[in-house]
Design a protein around this nucleic acid. Sequence first.
DNA 1: TCAATCTGCTCCGGAGATGC
DNA 2: GCATCTCCGGAGCAGATTGA
Length: 222
Amino acid sequence: MNLNNPETFKALFKRAAERKGSVRALEVLLGKKILGKKLLDDTAAQQYVAELSDDRILAAFTKQIFKSGFVWRVVENKWPDFEEHFFNFNIEKMLMMPEEMLERKAADPKIIRNYNKVKTIKANAQMMFDITMDKNISFAQFINDWPSEDIIGLWAYLKKHGQRLGGNTGPYALRLLGKDTFILSSDVEAYLRAQQIIDGGLQSKKSLTAIQAHFNKLKTES
DNA sequence: TCAATCTGCTCCGGAGATGC
DNA sequence: GCATCTCCGGAGCAGATTGA
């Protein structure tokens, strides 16, 4: 570990600006978030997350689950049929769907016929429903309220209580929705190892805590 | 032309090892 | 003894490629 002397935000920013051509070019990339067809700043993005309907969150989770380990283009091409098959991911309708119906839909070639992944739609709908009942808030509000300084906590929650939302699936889905989260891509992992912020397994508690601390530090410095 | 095989990609879970 | 970590094989399907 090299926690005493990791790269500062200033040095990282300078290096990134050189790589992207100029400070301005980098700021264009960093300054706003693209959500759907909209370009939003951080405050607007946060508002966007809080106002999402829960069916869109279930749709995002499901899309990412099917993309995981598969050609993303195929999932995108078939997505309109997914929306149609699963009632636009309406939570109540999904929870009322009998197993036989789910099994039948999972055999339709219009969608990706992976029954194990199809089953996650209902399971994750149940997780979302439970939270809205327990906390009396929408699932979107639940995600929005979770502090970005402990985003690994939200990852762990989704992994434990949801289905197939572990690994990078949960983080990717959260980012797709507009939640402020980092992604442990291979490039990011290589950087973290080069900076000696982590040395063991990427998903170990020790590593995740160190990574979160580093991102929190960068956020404070930025 | 058709069938078989390969490729792409990552979560999941089990087993054994390690640390506290 | 329990929790956590690490490693590895299995699972899943569409599209591309290869061979008969």
